[in-house]
């Protein structure tokens, strides 16, 4: 099975996700259906699991010595247990991997409002910060992508963007506890 390696490009990701959907979703859906879930819930949890799987693969944490299909399925089970704990009947904790984030995508209202604002008012900055901190793209590539004159400009612009977003967060007067729960 093809795995998400750090060399996987943005252009190669859709193929990887389609391939994993076709190979792992049927068994994950069957497992969730047996526990009373709906198709839409199964798909949502599976897509979150793909996200976690991809993050771990990019961080070099998932693949060594593991069966990729079983690993992704393990993440699905784990996320399902967390999301729909009240419905869980026959899952033992041995079946799931504990080393996963508590919450893949936060629905905290304060964060929702701020993200909506930043997605429109500060989109270019958010895209640059995403490319640097999340995608971990090298400065040279960022320079080409965002049209900067060189890697030094990338660094300066990155901190200017960080400052701008920080200021927005501060102005919104949100406390740290508001959305870092």
């Amino acid at each position: 099975m093809k795995t998400a390696t750090p060399g996987t490009t943005a252009a190669g990701r859709p193929y990887l996700f389609r391939m994993l959907y076709k190979s792992v979703f049927p068994s994950a859906a069957a497992w969730i259906a047996r526990r009373g879930g709906t198709f839409d819930e199964a798909e949502d949890v599976f897509q979150d699991a793909l996200l976690v799987y991809y993050e771990k693969a990019m961080a070099g944490k998932s693949t060594a010595g593991r069966d990729e299909k079983a690993y992704l399925f393990g993440i699905v089970k784990h996320l399902w247990v967390r999301k729909f704990r009240q419905r869980i009947t026959n899952v033992t904790f041995e079946e799931v991997d504990a080393d996963l984030p508590d919450e893949v995508i936060s629905r905290e209202p304060a964060a929702e409002v701020l993200l909506q604002h930043l997605s429109s008012a500060g989109k270019k900055c958010m895209e640059l910060l995403k490319a640097f901190y999340y995608d971990k793209l090298p400065a040279r590539q960022l320079s080409e992508m965002f049209g900067f004159s060189g890697t030094r400009s990338v660094t300066v612009q990155k901190y200017k963007c960080l400052e701008k977003v920080r200021e927005t967060v501060k102005q919104k007067a949100l406390t740290y506890e508001d959305f870092l729960k």
Binding site: L51, V104, I105, A111, L115, Y133, Y134, L162, V169, F179
Partner: peptide
Amino acid sequence: KQTLWLVEQYSRRALK
């Protein structure tokens, strides 16, 4: 930290 957490959330939404 709060700002970087927001960047992570923004990025995860894009990947999702």
